[in-house]
Design a protein around this nucleic acid. Structure first.
Lengths: 228, 228
DNA sequence: GTAATAGTGTCTTTGAGACATTATCTA
DNA sequence: TAGATAATGTCTCAAAGACACTATTAC
């Protein structure tokens, strides 16, 4: 803590990297900016932190405003802070980025902001077109998510309440962008205590043998980790 | 990015968790606060971000002012941002915490700030006595360092230019706070390409067989990771 | 029956953990 | 020589990777 006198103050924003799986691929929530700068460009949703709310509360509020989603049931985690002078042409803004992991999410309903929000596949999205330094933030977020799937059970937060092992494997394949051996994955998940727990129910989607349904277990870490 | 009008602004500080190994134990740089609040309490060094400098530059400047150490040769990494309302009784301050890893460092020379800085062992330091939320920040930093030693080659940044395998192992033991099997450690380091590279020189410290000297290699990641 | 998907068995290789031995220096 | 520290050899077990088979449904 400083002993300086009269420190400078800066607007502090939270930017959200909301990730979900749609059509077997990782998607990120982007808005189209309605105002300058970068008007019309895709950007990550976000907003300024209010005086009496924590950074996390600001992130939760912004997501609720943008998508109508109450994140308190899901996973919210701080990614990092981006504060280079010049990252925002309006003046110096300190952006605290957060990652949100959501199960297969509905089309976002346009929030109180007039900006239109949509899910965009992370592969195929040209990150250089994102406003500000949001391309960099997105890249950091995707790498964080890939890494966290190795040693945590967070993949289940992309899944609905009840899911099959094959659906959980599809999450890994979507985030990692590579195929995962079904047999070894099945064994590995079963060998990780508390990763998933059986519900006793099974699918009846037709076309093949019904799959056992599981729910998320109580474990938060996988040891030894999944290998990418 | 927000479309709100007239966002609130906050002072933004960088707080430093400077870590080094002294006497086989992990130490952190703490200052004694010279001003209220928390006057006389130990705290992490830090200071406010100036308008034209990046967050990293602010961290480097603060460390230079506190210790005379030029961190550009060593490892500086963002830890996280702590911005709860009320964490600073003077008003809302957003603190971006950074981790610095240093080789066996000299006693800090009192910087331009009149506060006295010293190295303090992380075990035995009562974190509840640290000012503000610095105890929490320190705990997060130590856990980050412990974790990073598993899958990166960062342990070498605690070592001098040339070091022995035993000295590198002592770093792991100091940070992890547990003994590491010398034989398996030696084998594992040798089996990780680019972790260390031989200098051809050896120690002559007396008392036993001279140890081969190594320098840091070019690899940044260890695969498979070291196991804690 | 066929097609489709879910789940299991097992062999091989790699690496971690544990332990004993050899090597090279000083005094 | 003894004492100290560095380095290596090797056995066992756990886990990853690769691959083939069995199970259960719809049609």
């Amino acid at each position: 803590m400083p002993s300086d006198t009269s420190p400078s103050s800066y607007p502090v924003a939270v930017d959200l990297v909301a990730l979900t799986i749609r059509n077997e691929r990782l998607h990120v929530l982007v808005i189209e900016r309605g105002v300058t700068p970068h008007r019309g460009d895709p950007a990550l949703p976000g907003g300024f932190v209010r005086p009496e709310e924590s950074l996390e509360a600001a992130a939760e509020r912004e997501l609720l405003e943008e998508t109508g989603i109450d994140v308190r049931r899901f996973h919210l985690e701080q990614l990092g802070t981006y504060g280079n002078p010049g990252r925002d042409p309006r003046g110096r803004v300190i952006a605290v980025a957060y990652i949100v992991l959501l199960p297969n999410a509905p089309e976002p309903t346009a929030g109180s902001d007039a900006e239109s929000a949509r899910w965009s596949a992370t592969v195929g999205l040209d990150r250089t077109t994102l406003a500000f330094d949001h391309g960099r933030i997105l890249s950091d977020a995707v790498e964080r998510a890939r890494s966290k799937l190795e040693y945590t059970t967070l993949a289940t937060t992309f899944c609905p309440e009840e899911f099959t092992i094959a659906e959980l494997r599809a999450v890994y394949e979507a985030v990692w962008g590579r195929p995962v051996d079904p047999r070894n994955f099945h064994r590995k998940v079963q060998a990780s205590p508390g990763f998933v727990e059986p519900t006793g129910r099974r699918t009846n989607r037709g076309g093949g043998r019904p799959a056992e349904l599981y729910r998320s277990g109580s474990a938060r870490l996988i040891n030894p980790p999944m290998t990418r």
